[in-house]
């Protein structure tokens, strides 16, 4: 059964959500799926609805809701580059809403265990909430970003994007039609030269670091700062022994940063390893758009939840 719900946040704003209740009664585990950012509670390509409907059939109560300023809820984010809003989310814009909703959800469903799930910004919010909220028993983190966005770095290319773009430009160099475009001033020269410059710079720099076995500052990911609020929340969270499932898209630009600047640095101790399940999803982009990736994702969530509910 799906039920439309409205919950007031601490500022008196009405938040809209949909509660999925299993027909045969709940197994005692409830999942709250958190908005990825500016997209609403259905998630990109209705991913959240697919997840919610599947796990609800397996006996879990599920709530998807729009935080303030998103979807059907009250409030508004200001117009401008979306990255401004992302920065706010990375710093905890939706933490208060999520705490209020968690309280409401527990009372409404009588869930014995509550798990927060989210993609991208939703994964960040989940961690920021869970570190201080002992009602949360687990986290399903899909493509969390560990780097703090910054407006002046919006246009700076990620290593993976740079490599793909640079290779495509190099291929075009042997295509007569594309060359004609280049000499007839139809090419975006700024983007072209910036990409190639970044690509060669990175190639040289990474070769240098490989040969010198050097390591850059662990708090800086390729020149972009780690979100230390997220990192500290994670360390505090795993310190309590609670579990987290990290689902990482193999073709997401944030995967590189997650692996090299977060996983390799902060997830190596036995205690932390015991709390984390890290699964890389094949053929997946940031939003798990491929049908194959969606299948893997849904199965992974389902089997991890089964393990968590067995501990009840």
């Amino acid at each position: 059964m799906e039920e439309i719900v409205r919950i007031l946040n601490s500022g008196g704003q009405s938040l809209t959500g949909v509660l999925h209740l299993p027909d045969g009664g709940s197994n005692g585990v409830g999942i709250i799926i958190l908005s990825p950012g500016l997209k609403d509670r259905s998630g990109p390509h209705r991913l959240y609805i697919k997840i919610a409907r599947k796990i609800c059939l397996e006996g879990y109560s599920v709530l998807r809701f729009d935080p303030h300023g998103v979807g059907d809820s009250d409030g508004e984010f200001q117009k401008g580059l979306s990255v401004y809003s992302f920065v706010k989310i990375e710093k905890g814009e939706f933490v208060d809403d999520t705490n209020v909703v968690t309280e409401w959800f527990q009372k409404r469903t009588l869930a014995k265990k509550i798990i927060l799930a989210g993609l991208c910004g939703g994964a960040i919010t989940a961690m920021l909430v869970a570190c201080n909220n002992t009602k949360i028993h687990g986290i399903i983190s899909m493509d969390t970003t560990v780097i703090l966005d910054a407006v002046d770095q919006v246009e700076s290319a990620n290593p993976l994007e740079t490599a793909i773009l640079a290779r495509s430009y190099l291929k075009k160099a042997i295509n007569i039609k594309k060359l004609a475009r280049f000499v007839s001033f139809k090419t975006n020269y700024i983007e072209l030269f910036a990409t190639l410059f970044n690509y060669f710079k990175r190639s040289v720099v990474s070769a240098f670091f490989r040969t010198n076995n050097n390591v850059k500052s662990k708090h800086v990911a390729d020149g972009r700062p780690l979100n230390m609020l997220y990192v500290n929340s994670f360390l505090s969270y795993v310190d309590s022994g609670r579990k987290v499932l990290f689902l990482v898209s193999d073709h997401d630009k944030s995967a590189w940063e997650f692996k090299h600047k977060f996983q390799d640095v902060y997830c190596q101790s036995q205690n932390v390893k015991g709390c984390c399940t890290i699964l890389t999803v094949d053929t997946a982009n940031h939003e798990f758009a491929s049908l194959k990736a969606q299948g893997i994702l849904l199965d992974a969530i389902s089997s991890w939840l089964t393990k968590q509910s067995q501990d009840l």
């Binding site: 500016l38 997209k39 508004e76 984010f77 117009k79 401008g80 580059l81 979306s82 809003s85």
Partner: peptide, 8 residues
Amino acid sequence: NMRFYQPL
């Protein structure tokens, strides 16, 4: 795309 956000 949602690079620029203009809800109003």
